[in-house]
Amino acid sequence: MPKMYSKPSRPERVNENLVPKDETIKFLLDYSKALSVIDYQNLKFEALLN
């Protein structure tokens, strides 16, 4: 019996309809709202407001 050196193919094919979780999207939108970048004399400060 010859040895098989090939890798088995992935059991699941990539589903084209994959989307991230709603929590991830919400987190990103909240992060964006909370983040403000303050310009001060050519310096940029990041502030995360809760």
Binding site: V14, V19, P20
Partner: peptide, 10 residues
């Protein structure tokens, strides 16, 4: 994000 999430995530 809504527009591109599927392409980026996939």
């Amino acid at each position: 994000i809504t527009r591109h999430k599927q392409r980026i995530y996939s």
